[in-house]
Nucleic acid binder design. Structure first.
Lengths: 298, 298
DNA sequence: GTGCTCATGTAAGTAAAACTAACATAGACG
DNA sequence: CGTCTATGTTAGTTTTACTTACATGAGCAC
């Protein structure tokens, strides 16, 4: 088995788990019950577990199957929702903004009250979506994306460059914080999706090994850092507020440019011009404030 | 196109994006370059965008392709990592705990310092993983899972039942909070993966429509609620601390049992007995405190 | 207990997808 | 200009996903 079961097997499984019936799942998916039965068997063989318990002339989810179905349904549900969104249309006076969840939480959301204060008649919707098609097809009004720009058919304005820094809790290691890059990489690292290659190259040290905690949720990473469980390499824009509040400290002054600057991107169309102009004007002022707040620390 | 491209196409695309070469990707994947070329073409046709810009006798990523590759790599990387973890072995004095990210952030992590205080020699690693195979194969020491129990071959202990409540910021709607269930569902809802069916049934109101913000990241949901962007239906265990601090308020006193209680689950093996006993004993005390703190509000 | 209905399972055949092999085109370089 | 090599295309082959037909057994009414 490759590292992911075939999609037909996963979709069959989710449908049977939800409907509790191979026959009903087959009807829903417009295939024969035999196809579903074989996909379920294939998936169970691949996973090496019993997803269902056969009882009488039906079947019920095993506990393994239940939780697997929970995960599968969420994953497939996200895809289904993304498809639905492709057909949706933004409503008047609603500003639909597409952002990365971590940026949304740490940078944009804390600043949104100031947008509301200035523009009380707008309602902002945040979509955790990076799909450029959402923008192209006019499903969202504005996106905040990382990248190199150059998106054809879309208006865009560069917001700010980001960088990677290593952060820790002030209480980390009993307050005896790593002072050198070598001490940083020799201690407990909370590894994330960010590669340490650039930072270590700039620091002149070897990359840390694969030991230690690996977390793929950046909000959990930051909480773990706060709790002193280790140090992490993270984007400045996400940790800046916590650094200012003293909740986190930066280790060494090594900062590595992050390859993808932040951009405002939006489709140009008549019906959205006002809210796009209002939102972009506002966010640019916020960015100016943010960059100004970086300057004394630079 | 179904709502998800075929896996062979996605894997081919990710490899080419990373290696910048169809020939190299084909070598890595042990297929012919022709297979890769056709999968790239198939994916571009399905998506309706150019993932690569053909230059000379090579190709480079378009901006669309770049960001798509970013997402694909993360997704495939998680799968790769999960496979790698299947082969990993926990280290001595490291307690590997598998949790749902939202539970980890809001329930477990804030309490972890007390575990460290009692057991300073342990190092806790949090794995955002729900795979029962991790437990069965001994990759993690303890899991905190939701479910009905009954996992064969694993020791388990029921921790607590959860419930769904509707929460809002105290400042929501200028402080004029919804008082009835009907007012709740008539106002702005931040929709999540949690279904409103049970709550509305208990409240005797119709489910809210599909209007409004949909967020699939529960930490972002809670921040959006804090900012007064809407109300959300969420598990009590996640919002309890914020309710106690007064950062959030519960709307109506309707509480709906959540179908999946929280359990400690662990594989029984000699080498982990001490740390499993220590961790489970500690977490049970924390649960007792948590449940006691619920009692006055009940 | 019998007979009927119906739900899932299995085997073989058919259609579609994924791949290989061969050929084509054009860029890069000496 | 000639050679090498990278991607693209076409046709054939292999594998996967589905259909069709048959099998088994549970559930239910009489």
């Amino acid at each position: 088995m490759s590292t992911l079961p075939p999609l037909p097997a996963l979709r069959s499984f989710e449908a049977v788990a939800r409907l509790g019936s191979i026959t009903l799942a087959a009807a829903e998916m417009h295939v024969t019950h035999s196809a579903i039965s074989q996909q379920i068997k294939l998936l169970e063989d691949l996973l090496g577990i019993a997803l269902f318990i056969r009882e009488g002339r039906g079947l019920r989810l095993s506990e393994d199957g239940r939780l697997y179905a929970l995960q599968i349904r969420i994953g497939l549900g996200e895809i289904t929702e993304a498809t639905r969104l492709v057909r949706a249309r933004p409503r008047v006076d609603e500003v639909v903004v597409a952002v990365l969840p971590s940026f949304g939480l740490h940078w944009l959301l804390p600043r949104l009250p100031r947008f509301y204060a200035r523009h009380p008649h707008y309602r902002v919707s945040l979509r955790a979506s990076l799909d450029i098609q959402d923008l192209r097809q006019g499903l969202v009004d504005i996106g905040v994306r990382m990248g190199q720009g150059g998106w054809e058919g879309l208006a865009q304005k560069r917001l700010f460059d980001d960088e990677l820094v290593v952060v820790a809790s002030p209480a980390f290691n009993g307050g005896r914080l790593p002072q050198t890059a070598q001490e940083v990489v020799s201690g407990p690292i909370i590894r994330t999706v960010e590669s340490w290659l650039g930072w270590c190259s700039a620091a002149g040290v070897e990359e840390p090994g694969n030991a230690g905690l690996w977390i793929n949720d950046s909000n959990l990473v930051m909480e773990a850092v706060r709790l002193g469980m280790g140090v992490a390499l993270e984007r400045r824009s996400l940790v800046h507020a916590a650094l200012q509040r003293g909740e986190l400290v930066q280790l060494t002054d090594i900062r590595v440019p992050y390859a993808y600057p932040h951009w405002l991107v939006w489709p140009q169309r008549e019906s959205s011009q006002t809210k796009q102009r209002d939102f972009t004007a506002w966010i640019e002022e916020e960015v100016a404030l943010y960059l100004a707040s970086l300057a004394p620390a630079a």
